[in-house]
């Protein structure tokens, strides 16, 4: 599977915009497990995507194969060997802009 890294976090992946995680064809992982696996190689990623309680930060979105993971089980959303996962800053705006 492939994880797309937003530009703001590429300093923590050595500049790479996509990180490949090898998965067996019949293997499934949760989004949380993907972030764990990613953070083993690139430890700066985890605390920027998740807070210290392991929750997805409020203004960070994860998209899996074109679907917002918030509406597909959150960090329990499943990915497969052919999945594409995007970590993306939410398009938030408001009072303090």
């Amino acid at each position: 599977m492939r994880v797309h890294i937003p530009s703001a976090l590429r300093r923590w992946t050595g500049g790479r915009d996509v990180v490949e995680l090898p998965l067996a064809a019949d293997m499934r992982m949760t989004a949380a497990e993907v972030i764990d696996a990613l953070a083993r190689e690139h430890p700066g990623i985890r605390d920027r995507v998740l807070d210290e309680q392991g929750e997805l930060r409020r203004h960070v979105n994860i998209f899996i194969d074109g679907e917002n993971a918030r509406f597909a089980g959150g960090l329990k959303a499943r990915v497969g060997a052919d999945s594409e996962m995007w970590i993306h800053p939410a398009l938030s705006g408001g009072a303090h802009d």
Binding site: G44, R46, D51, E52, Q53, G54
Partner: peptide, 16 residues
């Protein structure tokens, strides 16, 4: 810092 350097304890329900 690579990892957050001010963190609340796991299970406390609080986050910075």
């Amino acid at each position: 810092p690579t990892e957050g350097n001010i963190k609340f304890p796991k299970g406390s329900g609080e986050s910075l």
